[in-house]
Design a protein around this nucleic acid. Structure first.
Length: 229
DNA sequence: AGCCAGGCTACCG
DNA sequence: CGGTAGCATGGC
């Protein structure tokens, strides 16, 4: 097991602190920001919170979380942030509610498909394969749901993770999803809290240094590590 | 004013 | 079967 990834993880954690993913509306408090619960790896504690993570995982596909927050707010205010109520919305009502998160035509369909799937589980943990059979759920969404909603040790790979892995010379730019997932999983202790935290930290770090225009102009990861270690 | 966001599906060659 | 256009709004 190559310890490099663990060193990176420790460095990111020390620098940014625990991120408190996945944010939940049930944890939003006055004066605190957005339902994050840094250092607390016990959530979700209810089926409803698990369901909300599924909804968020679909809404955030290629979309910023701030936009997703407003879509979720809309659903909550409509009393539709639960499986039965969401399914009872008309397609146009649902689309209107999630509009801020973009791609609302397909996401409305995906949400209903995922909701039916969730209800069919009746509190059981889904397999990765079953999740992938749901229209609108691909590799990253499936792993996000398994890791954050069901506390299964599945490492989540996203575009940011790919960029960082490339910057670290850990992978080729054209590395496939499963290949990169395996690289992380085979070089880290199989620990749900660690997987959750590491992914969130990679996103946080990449947003600052590997997103948009920052990609070209920012310091390299190596420089960053040298600076904080 | 553009480029980008915590991707996925369908379709193309 | 690998590659990519299309999906859409909001933030910076």
């Amino acid at each position: 097991m190559n310890k490099k990834l663990l060193v990176i993880y420790e460095a990111l954690l020390k620098h940014y602190g625990p991120q408190g993913w996945w944010p939940l509306t049930s944890l939003v408090e006055e004066g605190k920001d957005g339902g994050y619960h840094p250092g607390d790896y016990e959530h979700p504690k209810t089926e409803l919170d698990a369901y909300e993570i599924i909804v968020g995982a679909i809404l955030t596909q290629n979309t910023s979380w701030s936009a997703v927050e407003r879509a979720i707010q809309n659903l909550m205010q409509m009393g539709a942030l639960n499986p039965h109520a969401l399914l009872s919305l008309s397609d146009s009502e649902l689309k209107r509610a999630i509009k801020p998160a973009g791609f609302y035509n397909q996401k409305a369909l995906y949400l209903k498909e995922a909701t039916k799937f969730f209800m069919s589980l009746s509190k059981k943990t889904p397999t990765r394969k079953d999740l992938l059979s749901v229209k609108g759920v691909g590799n990253e969404t499936a792993d996000s749901i398994l890791l954050y909603a069901y506390k299964q040790p599945q490492f989540v790979i996203d575009a940011y993770t790919k960029r960082i892995a490339f910057a670290l010379n850990l992978a080729d730019e054209s590395v496939g999803y499963m290949e990169l997932k395996k690289l992380f999983e085979s070089n880290l202790p199989k620990d749900v809290a660690l997987y959750q935290e590491f992914h969130a930290l990679l996103v946080e770090h990449a947003k600052r240094f590997y997103s948009g225009k920052a990609r070209a102009s920012s310091i390299t990861f190596v420089d960053f590590l040298r600076e904080i270690l």
